[in-house]
Amino acid sequence: MWEIPEFFRLVYAQFDQQRYQDLLVQFELNRNSQYRRLSKGMRALVNLILALTSNATYIILDEPFDGLDVIVRENIATMVIDEVADQQKGFLISSHDLNELDGLSDRVLLLKDSRLVQDYHLEEIRETAKKLQLVFNDKTIPAVLKEHSQLIRVSGRVLVVVITHYTPEIDQQLRALNPVLLEELPLTLEDLFRANLAHDTGYQLMK
């Protein structure tokens, strides 16, 4: 482990070797350990330490949480947040783990079939979007939902929908239908992902 910085300094002129050593101590990583003998989680942690201590302006992480235990995940997330808060650095993280990205990201790009299909600024979208759980007296989908919402889950008469531009007019129309249940739920990145795929399944989930 103590030899790795020698290689990194060949590429990253601003590599911070002292910080690298300090982080090894902080996370109780033995500097005499062989990298290839580390567990998958520990290798991921070392990789992130190397990325941070490279002092690169932009850091790209590919599936940084894949296969890691919860403690290592929390360590990595904390380090990324601290790095963004303390310095002028940008992170681009590719991941299928939407729950982990939810607490890290201020902007999310959704790729499908190698194409960019959505660009979410999370602070903005959460000001206008709502996730609702609804129950109506029958199984008919109201026109207001067909026009303005995206269905992400259905169980019997229980509908869970995302409305990306929720307005007072839409709220008034829904309440005028006298639903048995109208409840707002927390909106997550996974909900936005499911909602974006709604056109693939659509309202075929309900007959």
Rank of each mutant, 00 (worst) to 15 (best):
M1P: 11
E3I: 12
I4V: 13
V11Y: 15
V11S: 15
Y12A: 07
Q14D: 15
Q14E: 13
Q18D: 14
L24G: 07
V25D: 12
Q34K: 14
R36P: 05
S39L: 06
M42T: 00
I49K: 00
T57Y: 00
T57N: 00
I59A: 00
I59S: 00
D62L: 05
D62V: 04
D62W: 03
P64C: 04
P64R: 01
V70G: 00
V72W: 00
N75L: 01
A77T: 10
V80R: 01
V80H: 01
I81S: 05
A85W: 04
F91D: 05
L92F: 13
D97A: 10
L98G: 00
R107K: 14
L111E: 02
D119V: 02
Y120S: 02
E123D: 10
E124R: 13
R126A: 10
K130C: 03
K131I: 09
F136E: 12
K146E: 15
I152G: 07
V162S: 11
T167H: 02
E169V: 13
I170T: 11
Q173P: 05
L174A: 06
V180F: 04
V180Y: 07
L181W: 08
L182G: 11
E184F: 08
E184V: 08
L185A: 04
P186H: 06
L187P: 06
T188I: 09
E190C: 02
E190F: 05
H199G: 04
H199R: 09
D200P: 02
